[in-house]
């Protein structure tokens, strides 16, 4: 018997501030539904957001909510989780927040294996500030700070998190909405650091600059650009550059930071 997800929702705060066609609401809703399916009590759930469009997600929930400074979400929740290990912590960080200013904290949260679920809505640009390119914006894309195409290459945030030591890493898209919820549940049930990247449209900026059409067309574009991980791995490098992979990259069960910390310290007590 699952809970009705609307108990987590601050209905009186709606409508939200996101643009028509933005995927953030869909991702937030799926996060809340997955929480309901896991029957997480309202007071034991915390949504920690970054800064930017996705950072506003906290204004629409009725669970514990935290929004700190830009990029530092994973550092704050490391402290929250160590102080309060029974909290189920969900982080909501945009591509700019997590992969640029916050990348150091991502690496170390993954290395420490802090037991949180990091959700990265990747809309391929900085939306709140007017559509500038982020580290995850594909190369050659047009944005408000790359009018002749982004000169820098992009990066694979998922592989970085996996390499740094995350227990669970997956990527999906807004189109694969059933899979998205499944990934959120798998990620949360895996005790340790979990990251789920969700590719999502920003029709207002990224879509408009790159002439990808309206929200509907952009979702089609994402669907067409995305292939399952095993297929992606068979592609040539050149072909890979034109695609996103989706799927589960890592699923491990190493002990999380809190467990390790106390195992070690109690071991010290024992020796003393």
């Amino acid at each position: 018997m699952s809970i009705d997800y609307s108990v987590y929702l601050a209905k009186e705060r709606l409508p939200h501030l996101w643009c028509p066609g933005c995927g953030h609401g869909i991702i937030l809703k799926n996060m809340l539904i997955s929480m309901a399916e896991m029957e997480i009590p309202r007071e034991k759930a915390l949504l920690a957001c970054g800064i930017g469009c996705s950072g506003r997600a906290g204004d629409y929930v009725n669970i514990h909510r935290f929004q700190g400074t830009h990029g530092r979400t994973l550092a704050y929740v490391t402290g929250i989780k160590m102080a309060h290990p029974e909290l189920k912590i969900f982080c909501f960080m945009g591509d700019g927040d997590c992969s640029a200013i916050g990348i150091g904290h991502l690496i170390h949260a993954a290395r420490r294996n802090v037991d949180v679920t990091a959700i990265v809505p990747n809309n391929l640009n900085y939306g709140m500030t007017g559509g500038q390119f982020s580290p995850l914006t594909p190369g050659e894309s047009l944005t408000s700070t790359s009018r002749s195409g982004k000169a820098e290459p992009d990066m694979d945030l998922c592989r970085l998190a996996a390499e740094a030591g995350a227990n669970y890493v997956a990527r999906t898209t807004i189109y694969h909405v059933v899979e998205m919820k499944k990934r959120f549940i798998e990620a949360t049930n895996n005790k340790g650091f979990s990251l789920v990247e969700v590719i999502t449209p920003c029709p207002t900026y990224y879509g408009r600059y790159n002439q990808l059409g309206n929200a509907h067309k952009m979702i089609e574009w994402i669907k067409d650009k995305t292939v399952p991980l095993h297929k992606y791995e068979e592609m040539s490098v050149k072909n890979q550059e034109q695609h996103f992979w989706r799927g589960k990259l890592v699923e491990k069960h190493k002990p999380d930071l809190y467990t390790r910390y106390w195992q070690h310290e109690r071991g010290m007590d024992h020796r003393a």
């Binding site: 550092a75 989780k81 160590m82």
Partner: peptide
Amino acid sequence: PQRGGIYLQMEDEIASIAAVIGASLGGMKA
């Protein structure tokens, strides 16, 4: 640790104060 407390060595001072704020809001004096 001998008093049930937590010591964390963070990746920089930004993360340090962030973790302190997080722990404080979680109920610990930090």
